[in-house]
Design a protein around this nucleic acid. Structure first.
Lengths: 254, 254
DNA sequence: TCTTGTATGTTTGTAGACAATGATACAAGT
DNA sequence: ACTTGTATCATTGTCTACAAACATACAAGA
């Protein structure tokens, strides 16, 4: 079966350069702005203002915004425009159930692959979290927490799961902003983190998922403002919300 | 603690009417068009043509398209515009792993709620599938298959899981179009469906998830074109792709 | 005093226009 | 004959403008 022409089915010698579109850049920037609190949770999106801050027109901004609408990070009301989504207390459970869906499957995949390097990465993320939790920077602890969970999803190597998780991670941040006034984290790192990693290393995905679920239930309870149980002490930190004017010159100086 | 003003925290007597925006309508239409094959998989999106077919301008169309980009149903290449996504054979596993993530969690939630009415709904979806599988309409069987899985996610009552699943369901359809030439379904309904429902009814989420996983692996193998094992016979149907010109007058006669 | 109607201003939603980029066809050169 | 350069065309990406919808303030009436 001769090839029809030179290099007909030859393995590609060079790959597509995945350039980022303007909409991509804006979407990233919007997510970062929500994450940092620069865009106030529940607050409106002034299209003209934000577009000018980003140095773009309303069209690409609106297109990028629709991506976040699909993610559930923005809500769109017909005549009223876009607002940053809020998480109502009764939605907390749903959010964390969704995280369990993604992360428990990630655990299954990581365990199935049983790659030592993957587990090492997760271990590294855990130790970063442990280090951060010795300090008092609540924001830092929260970020390290998400980074730990993120590392599990990354190691699973499934692009869809990663995409879903990225959105859920930001929603988790929104929840922090939405619930109590202030950013609340556990002062002591829950032992469930250790349990998750150990179970993964032992190849016991069932135990890891069980630990994950209890950790998530714990988080829901904490954010719901339920009193601390079994001696866990929380650390509520009034966040000095950044008011950065949405940095970025997307098209590097064009 | 007197209320400050009338009805300050009174339970809402009337609710927000969730009007659908134009972008919503267009997004729905685009998904339907991909589902029906009117927008050919891998094919380009002619913005002007499709916009005119829908009776709208390019702006709202492009905004709606970005939602599908976020879902992974469309791909955007900077200078080259939008194309309907394709599922490469090596991506099949990832797609179905993602479905397992969503659906296994849905099963857990349904089992946890243990609501007889939920299970009855799922049973109904299964019997619809059984009925459809007695016929020869491959498209109908495929739709009933997805509807069965969808019903589980619906009964879980988690909006995020449902949103994710809706996208994955269309991706599954894309995969059918992408793989072999033709739409391939199992002629005999796999016994794993029965196993899933029975396990749910028995409250055994572990068994249900195991059955789900084997069913998914089966689907991956079938779509990958691997030879039929253990006597399962497939039914490949050359689909007469509909060439409907994207129906719809979104803004009912405006 | 509270409600209801009216007017004004602001913001969104859509359309149309222009510039820039990529695709295609053809001609010239090696 | 194949490659390379050039011109033309189509399509996208972005901007600006206009019309419609919404919010707010104020005045008139009950």
């Amino acid at each position: 079966m001769p090839e029809s022409g030179p290099d007909a089915h030859a393995p590609a010698a060079v790959f597509r350069v995945p350039r980022a579109s303007t909409v991509d850049l804006i979407a990233v920037e919007l997510r970062a702005a929500i994450h940092s609190g620069a865009l106030v949770v529940g607050g409106p999106i002034g299209e003209v203002e934000i577009a000018s801050q980003l140095g773009v027109s309303r069209s690409p901004l609106r297109e990028a915004a629709q991506r976040l609408v699909q993610e559930g990070l923005l809500t769109s009301t017909p005549g009223r425009g876009l607002r940053v989504a809020t998480i109502r207390p009764e939605d907390l459970r749903d959010l964390y159930d969704a995280r369990v869906a993604i992360e428990s499957q990630a655990i299954r995949l990581v365990v199935a692959r049983a790659n030592a390097r993957d587990i090492a990465e997760i271990e590294a993320a855990l130790s970063t979290l442990m280090t951060a939790s010795e300090g008092t920077d609540a924001r830092k602890i929260g970020d390290a927490d998400i980074a730990f969970h993120h590392s599990m999803v990354i190691q699973a190597g499934n692009s869809r799961l990663e995409r879903y998780f990225s959105g859920l991670a930001i929603e988790t941040r929104i929840a922090s902003f939405s619930m109590s006034d202030g950013y609340v984290v556990r002062r002591d790192v829950s032992p469930s983190y250790r349990a998750i990693v150990d179970a993964i290393a032992a190849g016991d995905s069932g135990a890891a998922i069980a630990a994950l679920e209890s950790q998530m239930s714990d988080a829901v309870a904490r954010l719901s403002g339920e009193p601390a149980e079994h001696g866990a002490d929380y650390d509520t930190v009034e966040e000095p919300l950044t008011n950065d004017p949405l940095s970025l010159e997307p098209l590097n100086g064009r």
